[in-house]
Design a protein around this nucleic acid. Structure first.
Length: 110
DNA sequence: CCCCTGACGTAAC
DNA sequence: GGTTACGCCAGGG
């Protein structure tokens, strides 16, 4: 038996579960979420899971950033994400979030 | 089966 | 700091 038997939708649910626990005003990276999942998945899969998140599910998707605190979403969505973050008091320096101030490092395993 | 495209990350230039 | 290249993994054509 291979250890990679997790069904994709199951993985997605785990990702959503982890993301749901990011507090207001705090942020994490795709890599952080990927590492919090057990067994760990690739950062791409995190992006994949968030992309296919149901609209009805209230998820703080805007608190997930690319490495270095950069916004990964292109165009309009990216601007919206930035707006949400600034509303929560998250500080930027150029195009990047001040990870030294807002990074949430207590993501428990899920 | 091959190729391309993503809400990624790291390294190299 | 912008660009390229490559590894990574799921989906689609």
């Amino acid at each position: 038996m291979k250890a990679q038997l997790r069904k994709p939708n199951l993985l997605a649910e785990r990702v959503w579960r982890v993301v749901r626990r990011i507090p207001r005003g705090r942020v994490v990276t795709y890599g952080d979420v990927a590492a919090a999942i057990v067994p760990p998945c690739s950062p791409r899969q995190v992006g994949w899971a968030l992309r296919r998140a149901p609209a009805g599910l209230r998820l703080p998707w805007h608190r997930v950033l690319a490495a270095g605190g950069r916004i990964a979403l292109p165009g309009e969505s990216g601007l919206e994400q930035r707006m949400h973050l600034q509303t929560e008091g998250v500080a930027f320096r150029g195009r990047r979030v001040r990870m030294d101030l807002h990074r949430f490092s207590d993501l428990p395993d899920s």
